[in-house]
Design a binder for these strands. Structure first.
Length: 432
DNA sequence: TCTGGGGTCCTAGGACCC
DNA sequence: TCTGGGGTCCTAGGACCC
């Protein structure tokens, strides 16, 4: 038995904790570069604002709707997430943190009234952190996800489901006929693992509700679609196929990619950007104690600028030996971007990926003849500590283009709120 | 004028081996 | 005229997730 707890409209809810006047208003949080809506309040959803809708289009379509847009403040959301997760963990003995706003709890060993217990945890998160949550319970992770969707929808749209399923929904406690009615009322695209493409194929085959999908034969699904969809069908039928991971496995690849604030044409600027992305990726790599054996850099033009000539290329550079050394990784990334660059294009985005990751504790023994074999891990650890204490970028390689505030590739974030919980200068003051 | 970032898994097909 | 069988590894691309 599993529960899934997640924060409603999480980024918007985080912002509202510190700006209560946003309650009841259509609020959206924008992606980096203030590009698209990546979180929407219920009021914004009711206005028809779609997930991923570009901000400039929203402004054109709804000039008078009073939509409040905010730049994403991931530092704030990350800190609020940690606080919420700590309380959510109290629901059961094991927790899997699945995303910034969702965690699964393994309830297998739990007795008592799970729904009443879930309501108490939900109330505690709301009171202590200020974030409204939904909790779904089911015999598999896929069913818990579905239950969570029902809990939130019943709360948000009265009449869509029986009111007692709102906020906390335990699908495994429903009598079969009630369960069938709920599944029949739920569109199949709401299932975890059924996206746009597969959803369209299923509808093409004459199915429409989750109940239709539950009644499929898994062997047929495997033959006609894939083992992935077969697993989803089995999970919906109550057969657990997706494991519970209470410790997060190490990442197999690490990326840092960004769209630019303005089109970039010069190789020099791309080298600066890629140097910075590679430095950040190397930090993440060290944080999980891994080494990378290959570095990939890519650049491309904007597919949205139809009038521009399009170009896209990625180049992978193998490292002499697996490493987490920023300077070696930046060197490789710069070599890659030089190889990928072609003059005469408006570049809109670049990125660095670290590939072929392995545990930092594993070493291939060999004789070191060259300077490249110098062990700078102590230096790297010091750089990481300095940047942690004094802020990202306090110590950096010169190739990242220091102290140039006018860099055209830097992203736009004109609507960002303060880091209320993680910077002393930003801590809110309460006036008596 | 303005359209995000970071991941995972699976499959098909090609290269290569004996 | 007729041209095998069985296997592994790698990569690119598709699909999904939040």
């Amino acid at each position: 038995m599993y529960a899934l707890i997640d924060g409603n409209n999480f980024y918007v809810s985080c912002e509202r904790v510190f700006r209560p006047s946003l309650a009841g208003q259509p609020v959206i949080v924008l992606s980096n570069n203030d590009g698209c809506a990546i979180a929407r309040s219920n009021e914004a959803k009711a206005l028809g604002i779609a997930m991923g809708a570009p901000w400039f289009q929203i402004q054109q379509k709804l000039p008078d709707a009073g939509v409040v847009a905010l730049s994403a403040n991931f530092t704030l959301y990350g800190d609020m997430s940690n606080r919420m997760m700590a309380i959510a963990a109290g629901l059961g003995p094991e927790q899997e943190i699945y995303s910034i706003d969702e965690s699964f709890i393994d309830l297998s060993a739990m007795g008592g009234d799970l729904v009443a217990r879930s309501h108490r945890v939900r109330e505690r998160i709301l009171q202590w952190i200020g974030i409204p949550c939904g909790i779904g319970i089911g015999s598999t992770k896929t069913l818990a996800k579905l239950a969570n969707h029902i809990a939130k929808t019943a709360d948000r749209k009265p009449g869509s489901y029986p009111a007692e399923l709102g906020r906390v929904c335990n699908l495994s406690a429903l009598p079969q006929s009630d369960l069938d009615a709920v599944l029949a009322a739920t569109e199949l695209g709401e299932v975890w693992g059924i996206g746009r493409r597969i959803g369209a194929q299923l509808r093409e085959a004459g199915l429409s509700s989750v109940l239709d999908v539950v009644r499929l034969d898994p062997a047929m699904v495997r033959g006609r679609w894939s083992v992935v969809l077969e697993r989803t069908v089995r999970e919906l039928q109550g057969q657990a196929c997706v494991g519970f991971e209470d410790v997060a496995p190490a990442k197999k690849e690490i990326a840092c990619t960004r769209s630019f604030g303005h089109p970039v044409t010069q190789l020099k600027e791309l080298i600066e950007a890629v140097s910075q992305f590679a430095s950040r990726a190397a930090e993440k790599l060290r944080a999980q104690g891994s080494h990378a054996a290959q570095v990939l850099a890519f650049i491309h033009t904007s597919p949205f600028r139809r009038q521009d000539k399009q170009y896209s290329r990625s180049v992978t550079v193998p490292l002499r030996r697996p490493t987490a050394d920023t300077s070696l990784i930046v060197q490789a990334a710069v070599a890659a971007v030089k190889a990928a660059f072609k003059p005469g294009f408006n570049y809109s985005k670049a990125g660095v990926m670290l590939l072929d990751l392995q545990a930092g504790s594993v070493h291939q023994g060999e004789l070191a003849f060259d300077e490249e074999g110098t062990d700078r891990s102590a230096l790297m650890a010091t750089v990481d500590r300095l940047n942690d204490r004094f802020g990202r970028g306090a110590v950096a390689l010169a190739s990242t283009g220091q102290s140039d505030g006018q860099r055209g590739w830097r992203m736009k974030q004109s609507l960002k709120t303060p880091e209320y919980t993680t910077r002393w200068a930003d801590v809110p003051r309460v006036l008596a």
